[in-house]
């Protein structure tokens, strides 16, 4: 088989498998969270039931453009993951990711609700908070492997984590923002219990909300894919570390209050500037001499 054919198969597998895996992960998340809180929790399949139910609901949108934006969000999220798992350019992947989230923000802005309006503003602030660290991650991977292509990075013989421990920690730190977990679930949280009701997603309902859910499943699998990259020299280890990271996020989610956006921003940048930058500089010198 040619490499193109293999790539095509992987992409198709991703298109079908990611939402399933992502949904199961979300279901496990809810069970573990419930256990941590002393509750029973729902069945593993609950996220799928939720999405199916949302699908069957009436389409009620504040305005038509909203659905278009959300559709673009889903589309670019899928595109991001597809390029990533096809072994494409990491920079393209990361900017497609940003583009996707900008579409969601636009969707929230387009409905004149003050809740989603402020939620959208906060989402932008969050994007600003995590973006430097994401770029540093890409730069670090490039410095270590001399390639921006995910396929090359994954095939790199020495463990990436050996070069980039600081960047790994920094990336896990901002993952909390990306996964929308406490303490950084500012713009929207998993449960509608904050001053902004549901923030960013307040004005979405029915099939539109289902699209956002599915997009998040794609997104989560893709993000864990980046975590995997750090340990790609040993696929089994990579998967285990990715799952452990997710568990760590759940633990952090359950032992923190939601902090203010000022602290989110400050801490994410401090982490990027110290752990990220220091690691980058060290790798730069180590590999250039």
């Amino acid at each position: 088989m040619t490499t193109t054919a293999i790539t095509a198969i992987i992409v198709i597998l991703y298109l079908i498998g990611a939402p399933i895996l992502g949904g199961i992960l979300a279901g496990l998340d809810r069970i573990i969270t419930a256990r941590m809180q002393g509750r029973y929790g729902p069945p593993v399949w609950q996220p799928f039931y939720d999405v199916l139910k949302l699908m069957s609901k009436e389409k009620a949108a504040v305005n038509k453009t909203q659905n278009f934006y959300v559709f673009c969000f889903l589309l670019f999220m899928i595109f991001t993951g597809a390029v990533f798992f096809a072994g494409g350019d990491l920079l393209l992947v990361l900017f497609a990711l940003t583009l996707a989230s900008i579409f969601l923000v636009l969707g929230a802005f387009s409905s004149n609700s003050p809740y989603s309006f402020i939620g959208a503003e906060r989402e932008l602030i969050q994007t600003m908070a995590y973006e430097p660290m994401v770029l540093i991650t890409a730069a670090g991977m490039y410095l270590a492997t001399k390639s921006f292509f995910v396929a090359d990075i994954a095939a790199f013989s020495t463990p990436l984590i050996y070069y980039l421990p600081g960047i790994f920690i920094g990336f896990v730190y901002i993952l909390t923002i990306k996964f929308r977990k406490s303490p950084f679930d500012l713009s929207t949280s998993h449960h509608a219990h904050q001053e902004l009701v549901k923030g960013l997603t307040t004005e979405f309902s029915g099939p539109t909300l289902a699209m956002i859910e599915i997009a998040h499943w794609y997104e989560n699998i893709f993000l864990l894919g980046i975590v995997y990259l750090f340990f790609a020299f040993n696929p089994l280890l990579g998967v285990i570390v990715a799952l452990l990271t997710y568990f760590l996020e759940i633990l952090i989610d359950n032992s923190n209050a939601r902090v203010t956006w000022q602290l989110t921003m400050k801490s994410a940048w401090i982490v990027a500037a110290t752990l990220g930058m220091a690691n980058l500089i060290i790798v730069f010198f180590k590999l250039s001499v």
């Binding site: 573990i32 419930a34 256990r35 941590m36 809180q37 002393g38 509750r39 029973y40 633990l251 952090i252 359950n254 032992s255 923190n256």
Partner: peptide, 21 residues
């Protein structure tokens, strides 16, 4: 930091506080 982490991890191995009514 993570003051509740101990309690929540401990709780994971314990019986649920609510029952299946």
């Amino acid at each position: 930091f993570l003051k509740l982490a101990g309690t929540v991890t401990k709780r994971m191995g314990m019986k649920s506080a609510c029952y299946m009514y």
